[in-house]
């Protein structure tokens, strides 16, 4: 399998009345064809803005993509015109959002919203598009699909609307599906339905997926690769088992330790990460997690750590840290006896 997308040095800022928001501060990674990449991180860490930057959906102004490139099938998406980008969206890259109500048009029938893209991107006739639309609704598990084409979004439940969004997203066989917290607003039983559906569709259609979430449990179930973001940067990424079982960044470790688990009875005190997330209006210097990191060194406050391969771990397990987490933990354990 080859590389589908190369993101390099992406920097996105917002120039607002309250000052500059340093939302994405140099993000680089490769996404393989058919790969499922899970992105987790604190609220405000730039996960959504990074995805919107790739999709050409940043409102400009106040937003501005300051630098970087996104090579997708031989073209730099950041250099495409608005019209060219519109063709890429939907046909080659699809995106689904947290709240399907904001992305579905409330006054258009579900059928119309599905057939639009099929006609625009795949050049289908009205009746071809309608047939395909019914097939798609059926595929995402909406009963009585053909009759439901005439329904309006408000006549569907939250879970059904998210299924419709998935059907629209996948209607043109995209190479990449970006899902930004697609299940966060849903109940766990409905979330389980949607995750199962996406896994099954991925098996059939083979697209790559970027799944953005704050739920480490969700990514554990679906992602091949995990990417941990903080302060608009990637602090750690790699094969999911390597990152979760052998974290090398103090933030990743802190997140894992602060979570209670369903399969663990409740006697352990949760380890808390002290302090609060960074103010994104301050230009980051050094490691953005340093102020909350008990293992931070002087260098962490001054100089930004580059992403480097973790020695002895799986290929592609990268960490940005000036400290050597396993070594520090070992020393700490020795000290405590």
């Amino acid at each position: 399998m080859g590389v589908l997308m190369e993101v390099r040095d992406l920097v996105t800022r917002f120039y607002t009345q309250e000052g500059t928001v340093y939302a994405v501060n140099g993000v680089s990674y490769d996404l393989q064809e058919g790969e499922t990449l899970g992105i987790v991180g604190e609220s405000g860490s730039g996960k959504s803005v990074h995805a919107l930057s790739i999709m050409g959906l940043i409102p400009q102004p106040p937003g501005k993509i300051e630098s970087g490139s996104v090579m997708f099938q031989g073209r730099d998406l950041l250099k495409l015109s608005r019209d060219q980008m519109r063709l890429v969206r939907g046909a080659e890259i699809a995106m689904i959002f947290q709240d399907p109500m904001t992305s579905l048009n409330p006054v258009l029938k579900i059928g119309t919203q599905l057939t639009e893209g099929l006609k625009l991107h795949l050049g289908m006739t009205q009746s071809q598009a309608e047939n395909r639309a019914a097939e798609l609704l059926d595929m995402v598990g909406i009963p009585d699909a053909r009759k439901r084409l005439d329904a309006y979004p408000h006549q569907f439940s939250g879970g059904m609307r998210q299924r419709v969004m998935i059907a629209i997203g996948l209607s043109c066989n995209p190479k990449l599906l970006i899902a930004d917290e697609p299940t966060t607003a849903l109940d766990v039983t409905i979330q389980a339905q949607i995750i199962e559906l996406i896994k099954q569709l991925k098996e059939e259609l083979g697209m790559a997926i970027i799944w953005i979430t704050h739920d480490l449990g969700v990514v554990a179930g679906i992602a091949d690769t995990l990417q941990v973001m903080y302060g608009g940067m990637i602090l750690e990424r790699g094969p999911i088992k390597a990152v979760m079982h052998n974290p090398h960044n103090a933030y990743t470790l802190g997140l894992m330790n602060s979570l209670p688990r369903l399969d663990e009875d409740g006697n352990r005190r949760l380890q808390q990460i002290e302090g609060s997330p960074p103010d994104m209006r301050i230009e980051p210097v050094g490691d953005p997690f340093a102020p909350r990191n008990p293992y931070a060194t002087e260098r962490c406050f001054k100089e930004r750590p580059p992403l480097r391969q973790v020695e002895g771990s799986a290929e592609g397990h990268l960490v940005a840290a000036w400290y050597d987490l396993p070594a520090v933990l070992k020393a700490e354990a020795a000290q405590n006896g």
Binding site: L216, G217, A220
Partner: peptide, 14 residues
């Protein structure tokens, strides 16, 4: 069903 739907942050368990 509710408990079975809750994801666990451990790829091996999942």
């Amino acid at each position: 069903a509710l408990l079975s739907a809750v994801p666990v942050p451990d790829p091996e368990v999942e």
